[in-house]
Amino acid sequence: MKSINGRSLVFSAVFFLIISVLPVAMIKLIGFLFTDEVASVLLQLTDSFTVPPFAVSLLLAAIFYLFNAKKEARKWQKAVFYPVFCLISFAVSLLLTTVNGVPVFVVLKAAVEVFI
């Protein structure tokens, strides 16, 4: 069994924090622009640590770690893989993030039904 790659672990932890907190922060920021209630926005940030978004973010961070720890990966692979992976991870996390208990993708689905 190989030893843990400390550098990759730190990267993965940062990656996890970004994809689990940033989408919620974004949504809350949009809410903030409309509601003007700072306290409520800060309180609702805790929504980010609900499952399944939390679990999925953790899973993506684990995959991120596995790829990052592979030292033999070529430069072009890293250059293409990481941006795409990060973007997909962020999108997945954003769609799973809940707004008052309703996942964003459900809200989008409902909106699509109405407008398209």
């Binding site: 843990i4 399944p52 679990a55 684990a62 995959i63």
Partner: peptide, 21 residues
């Protein structure tokens, strides 16, 4: 290391699946 990671991933997947049920 891979085995450990796979176990973690499996557990996380199971957790995320059942949490939505």
């Amino acid at each position: 290391m891979k085995k450990a990671a796979l176990i973690i991933i499996s557990l996380v997947l199971l957790f995320s699946l059942f949490s939505g049920c």
